[in-house]
Write a protein that binds this DNA or RNA. Sequence first.
DNA 1: TTATTATGTTTACCAAATAAACAAATTTGC
DNA 2: GCAAATTTGTTTATTTGGTAAACATAATAA
Lengths: 400, 400
Amino acid sequence: MESLNAAGIDAGRNRDALRQHNLSLILKLVHTNGSVSRSQLTTATGLNRSTILNLVNDLAERKLVISSESDSPTGVGRPSHVVSPSPEVVAFAVHPEFDSTTVGVVTLGGRVLARRREPLHSAPTPEKSVAEAARLVSELRMELPKGTRIAGIGVTVPGQVRGTDGVVRLAPHLGWVEVPLATMLTQATGLPVTIDNDASIGCMAEYTFGSARGFENTVYLYAGSGGIGGGVIVDGVQLRGVAGYAGELGHVRISSSPGQDYSGLSGTIESLVQRDSLLESLKLYGATDEELEVEILTSRSDAVRQLLHEQIDALGAGLGNFVNIFNPNAIVLDGFLAALFKYDEGRLLNRIRESSLAASSERLIIRAGELGSNLLMIGGAELAFGSLLNDPAEAVLANR
Amino acid sequence: MESLNAAGIDAGRNRDALRQHNLSLILKLVHTNGSVSRSQLTTATGLNRSTILNLVNDLAERKLVISSESDSPTGVGRPSHVVSPSPEVVAFAVHPEFDSTTVGVVTLGGRVLARRREPLHSAPTPEKSVAEAARLVSELRMELPKGTRIAGIGVTVPGQVRGTDGVVRLAPHLGWVEVPLATMLTQATGLPVTIDNDASIGCMAEYTFGSARGFENTVYLYAGSGGIGGGVIVDGVQLRGVAGYAGELGHVRISSSPGQDYSGLSGTIESLVQRDSLLESLKLYGATDEELEVEILTSRSDAVRQLLHEQIDALGAGLGNFVNIFNPNAIVLDGFLAALFKYDEGRLLNRIRESSLAASSERLIIRAGELGSNLLMIGGAELAFGSLLNDPAEAVLANR
DNA sequence: TTATTATGTTTACCAAATAAACAAATTTGC
DNA sequence: GCAAATTTGTTTATTTGGTAAACATAATAA
């Protein structure tokens, strides 16, 4: 029998799918909003208050949320019970870099409980990096209070990642090629591991808990040490593409200039907007993004201003393209790109408008990311929480 | 009470939503696949065959589908009943151009029943164009067989369109600005009217019934008389953006060249890949896309070859960007862009690969559109069928 | 203090999907 | 050519998630 063309329609739904969806919906609302009253849940979902009671009880029995009476009534009528994410449910975030490995613990609800960073003296092999990560995870795991349950590990990789089987295709900055990272880290820790590109993860974090919150069509650009990556939220869902490589916004070509980016493509945003050239003109070496930002905002040098203008213009041209393509309601800039934005917001906005259609940039909002150093910790944990949030009834949590 | 951050989660689901989804699913499957057996429907949806019986009966009672016994058994076991889209349900497609107005009638299932084109002697005002369209709709409507029911009218506009209220923001080729087209045509015909950009509609048509069928991540480029437009299918759903202006792929900047496109942006794909300059170098004037394609594929002139190479290179650079951004499994080219593709497929593919990351273009398929002159008729009707397909139980159809 | 309002909680109910049982129509095997 | 195997159609009883109604409860408002 020929298979049917499903044309983007997902499968048929039955009662199980219905229940799964509603449980997932409640848990996501509690996760992203912190503490939520049952009455808020009824209005937000449109479901009957009996149903909300039932769903919340179900999640509470699974110890995913805590339901308690309100301690501060807000208005007329009986106070509504408050539902909060359980602080006993956590996930680990792992961020391997060429000079360090960072591991964090984040609760359901997005609070960073602890973080540990281990400096490295040379660019790590995958084996070395996995061993370091596993050691830090193990340390943090032992310090968790009794009763804590673990959703898994989310790894933020500075490179291209195939999410389906957890293989790092190419991470130029680390020198990794075709590394089955998820499998390796699962073996070392016994926990389920999900991996993704760092910029995609940053995008999801800013969308869920940061500057892009509530903007269901967001274009996100992140400049890490390994170049410029991106992420896009389309109607509230992250753009992934057929194999998960979508969102390589830094490698989009905008000019005929011959300069190449870290992947050998010329005229791209990444080739024109370079952190290193800014550091050089400011005579800063090994500065953090915070230090760089201070220098940018206080510099009085004409040469620096010239360079900043060039970079803002290039960034604006690139963002104009994305406005034409995505018609977003928000653009969020992270890493040192946020400093360019803060340096001359007006110039950047003008450049964007000049290189996009008028209608597409109406009511467009541009912001800097606000999660700072917690960005990849929160995002990595978000990745690890994914399966729990999508199917709360089926997810299996590990004990501490 | 503060409103909750819904974070891209849609509302709670109840029994009604479940039923609506399943009815919609069945109707869409029948619509896009033509004739489908009930057993195919059970396997495609995962629903029980009792449920499928019930859903199909429901749709049949509403006279949206026809259920009949199979006339040619395919294998072991009792032959499965066949469900077909009702040919009595139709929609109109309207395509206003600067030198003509075209109206078509298309059945559920995507068959073009009739088409009528009225040449115009001058670029029409919105009023004139609406009057012409209404007249043609009325003519075709009277010729429809008794019992035919009409879902509505879909209008393909060569310009930027705000779908929410049916206003044409800007259609440079027609000289229209801020025209409440949907309202005007509804008043003139008494039928519900939906409007959209021509390239978006072409994209939807090729995805539902043409070359992009089954490719859930498709980038589509369409070169009409009014420049280059685009459309993108992301996980089976068309990219719309916050106000519906997404997909302006022709206005994406890829080079520093000063040449401008029809919207005044420089270095864009549309400014570098121009139908007019090809026509000029071939000394063709007023040729159709079909005639242009023949000339391109048979020309022996060095100058023409040079120009074709330049245009293919520019198109390839632009498509490379889209590969980096969307990681699609298919790219579909329509209008004279299909001729460029056919002229030198290998060169285009090489240019795309040169300007995109290796992983992102793996297993990428490039095709020409296959719906030809029916493209905008089928797509326009698809637009008009939208509400019926999304909620078969609630849709109201007009009589012929 | 009482009325009003909003929510909590329990109970009976509804309807959509399903499983089970049997019927029917085809192919396969002899 | 006929019985067996297979697949689907159809009917019936069942399951279950969401809902509406009724009443209880805890706040504010009068």
